[in-house]
Write a protein that binds this DNA or RNA. Structure first.
Lengths: 195, 195, 195, 195
DNA sequence: TATGAATGAGCATTCATTCAT
DNA sequence: GATGAATGAATGCTCATTCAT
């Protein structure tokens, strides 16, 4: 009942929340983290007040944006787990994740800043999914054995960086990732990674 | 004599300029490009006016910082040209350049933003030096033949990114570069780079 | 209805705009163009931000002030056109305009500086109204025939100047204008004006 | 002796003082009271320190400028006393004073600001000279009898104002003064001045 | 004594956030 | 709830003045 009474409102609110997030994505992609809340509101077609109703601070809005991207990368990992071949699975995750990141300048800006708070659940699942991918690829002998979970975001950020530079060809990140993946192969390792 | 009479003033001013640059380097490294001019002044132990005497705007100060790093990377390239072995030369340049970049969060912040105006001379020399390094390494068959000059800054930025993430171990960028370099070897190329 | 629903906001904003203009008028009258935006805000009883919402820069605020006075002077001219007697009409315009100018030190400050941008429409109407006044008074033989439109602001500024000098009696400008008007009579012309 | 020993220095210093004043005159004429001390120094070909050696504050420098003009106007009055004809004498003073003022935008700017402190001696002599001119012209029946000493600076400022407006013809102030002088004639007075 | 580099209070302007409508 | 006008702390920059050389 209460549910029934509230649903219309919630649908409205949810739609608004989405519009704000979408507007924020666009505006942050264009202007980086210097984008202004007023511009987000304008792009979303709502008043600033509405932005603040859904996200208490600018920081919270940025965090929400980060989470939404984080989740896409996580999903890329989950999907990749389906692949039989461990190396195929890992590289698939990296390519899909790269695609996501490269399409969103905001992400790099955001992750470039410290302290983006992802929920423990999200982090745990991320850790588990990607650890599994890494472990399998190590077990099959395809992946350098000393790669660790913490190296992954670092690689991903490199990709994001490739996206930011405006003079690069749109494939820049793909070149970057190609080299990186070749470097990840166990066979190609010139030696152990510094620890 | 006239020289001796003039030098003290200039020496003082030059010293102050250095102090400002050094202070700026520290402050920007700590707070990124949001660092405040007043803080730069405080760190340098001078008044804000002095900062502005040497650098007309915040933008100019940041640019000066970028140039000073750019020149270090260029120097790394020049030095590397001395090496007999082409592959040795290239990787040496990358390692030395990486060392420079990784020690300075500001650089990544700066390069992450578009429009850093380096002088044409600087850019030209940079291009020539690194092109030579690449060409030699390609000629000797060590480097993937389809690597181009434009890929270099992209790789470097990836390194910078590795430095920014605060939770990474101090060797993070070295792990990144190790993988990258292994991926650059002609022998390890799984295929051509997307163009 | 929709009107009624929207008006309150606009009415509020408009009221605030007026308060800002009024505050600015007072503060600029007191401190000249060196008056500070914060003081304008304080006098208007609003935050600085509100001042800036209505006038994007200090310059724009000053210009708005100038326009508002300019319009009063124009209105003085329009009203004067009603008078039958051409000389009566002209002197009336001058007296009324003088009254306006003398009450506002800011205007003199502003006009004393070059480059006050009045809209072409405003300037055109000003020109037409005062030219008519002059032509009529010349035609009736009351006014010196070689007076031209460009002389008018000059005379007016003289009045403004009389107002600025703080040691003058409040009637100073009236003494000034009295002499001036007597000098404008065709009968009193000792010779042609230098061109 | 001490005198003899100091004179060379004084000559130097006096020359510098003049250079500063001259530079200030030029710079204030160009940029009005917003002119900067550094610019004055540059124009005078000296360091700022030297400007400050001769004039303790910007205010003092501006005052000195005002005094120098004030003295020219005073001199114009003194010279005019030589004329036999009282009306000739008065108008001559006005024309010569006008010439001086009109050549110096700075003066208007300066006098436009309140509180320019002239020495009592200067003020007294000014008062005496011009009062004499006025009294003689009243006695001969040429000048409106209710003109008082305080009206003079006001008229002069009107002239200064005519000079400031950049779009006016160079003779603008002469037109203004012509009208004014015609208005000063006793015969042309339409009535008493408001008091 | 002259110089001009250094100083820092002061001011215009911005923008995240609040709150009356 | 939604709106956008209002708020004011924060920040880049200026310029009169000081002082080490």
């Amino acid at each position: 009942m209460t549910q029934a009474a509230q649903r219309p409102l919630r649908a409205d609110a949810r739609r608004n929340r989405e519009r704000v997030l979408e507007g924020a994505r666009e505006v942050f992609a264009e202007h980086g983290r210097d984008a202004q809340m007023d511009d987000v509101a304008k792009r979303a077609g709502v008043g600033v007040g509405t932005v603040y109703r859904h996200f208490p601070t600018k920081e919270a809005l940025v965090a929400a944006l980060a989470v939404s991207l984080f989740e896409k990368v996580l999903q890329a990992g989950r999907d990749a787990l389906e692949h039989e071949d461990p190396w195929e699975a890992l590289t698939n995750a990296l390519w899909t994740g790269g695609e996501t990141l490269s399409s969103d300048r905001a992400f790099t800006e955001i992750v470039g800043q410290a302290e983006v708070p992802f929920s423990p659940e999200l982090q745990t699942e991320m850790y588990e999914v990607y650890s599994t991918l890494l472990d399998r690829a190590k077990a099959s002998g395809d992946l350098r054995p000393d790669i660790v979970m913490d190296d992954i975001p670092m690689f991903m950020c490199g990709i994001g960086m490739a996206t930011v530079k405006p003079h690069c060809c749109p494939n820049a990140w793909r070149r970057h990732l190609t080299v990186l993946i070749d470097g990840l192969r166990a066979d190609n390792a010139s030696g152990p990674l510094p620890s």
